[in-house]
Write a protein that binds this DNA or RNA. Structure first.
Lengths: 166, 166
DNA sequence: CTTGGAAAGTCAACAAGGCTGACGTAACTT
DNA sequence: AAGTTACGTCAGCCTTGTTGACTTTCCAAG
């Protein structure tokens, strides 16, 4: 049969075998992606769930609990357990909203910022090494594929975060 | 200051901001990556752990329990719980080794192959859509960055799987 | 000003899937 | 014959997710 691509590009990269390799690459890479923060957190009272909360509070200071709920995609009971620990132990501060006093605006305390720094330094170091090894063009492709892989709703979250910072 | 790259390439892609975007892209994309199989598995007695076992047994038929243990990076107690369920319910067969009778060689039964098919069809469909949207060059970059992100030991696992099929 | 509903928090119970430690058995290796 | 390896299993624990039911607070619309 004739080449079905308008541009004449090979479709060899879409074979089941290529796709399987991509799937396994995601699996193994994600293990590496979380390994360094996990190592830092183990022994402390915290886990990956705390890391995620800290990351997004750092990313969007003053975000509300429901915002966080949407981004993380967990139940409020689950998030609440994590936030309670972080607040009790002085890593996160929950300020009652000025306009809407039902809302809690979340901020990292200096102590929280310290842990955030340690975690993201470790994660960024690995990312930086991978980026450097692969080069800018590969990085662009990496980001394109990941973005295309997201659920549309999550992609909006991601893109929203990308610029606005809220 | 002078451009520090020998090749004269910009290092803008290595800024903390770019790295943070990459980190969040991994987070959101991994959610998408697992979403479809998770949907299929929910309601059945199985979860992501079963999916992983099924995937790698399919990938390397006849693999032993210790092989699987190494690839998955979990304890034997944890894997055993998953395997026991899969064997009891007739998705996986454990054949005593011919050369070394201590070993159990794992195979998918027709029923197991059926579920594997459903799961990987769903996951590949998403992968294929993402690959197609991003194009072959982006896919190459995607794979390069992921590979660079793995722990060296896991990279060996990945690369080993890539060709040999064992 | 009252009331409906949204936002937040809490309690209880449960499940999946990790973990450690201890132990047993069969089979291979030295 | 002794030691090691592969596998399985019991028991108990932790993290992180889930539902369901309920309360408190408070904004906003009638």
């Amino acid at each position: 049969m004739a080449d079905p691509t308008p541009s004449g590009e090979s479709l060899l990269f879409l074979t089941d075998e290529q796709l399987r390799k991509g799937i396994e690459a995601m699996f193994f890479a994600y293990r590496g992606f979380t390994a360094d923060p996990d190592r830092i957190l183990e022994g402390m009272d915290y886990g990956r769930a705390h890391h995620r909360a800290i990351h997004f509070i750092h990313r969007s200071p003053g975000t509300t609990v429901s915002n966080l709920l949407t981004i993380l995609g967990v139940t409020k009971q689950s998030l609440n357990r994590v936030l309670r620990a972080l607040i009790e132990q002085g890593l996160v501060e929950a300020r009652v909203g000025r306009r809407d006093k039902r809302e809690r605006h979340l901020h990292l305390t200096p102590k929280g910022q310290e842990l955030e720094r340690a975690l993201s330094d470790a994660q960024r170091a690995r990312m930086r090494a991978a980026y450097r090894a692969a080069g800018p063009q590969a990085v662009a492709g990496f980001r394109q594929v990941l973005e295309a892989m997201m659920d549309p709703e999550l992609r909006r979250q991601y893109q929203g975060l990308k610029e606005s910072g809220v």
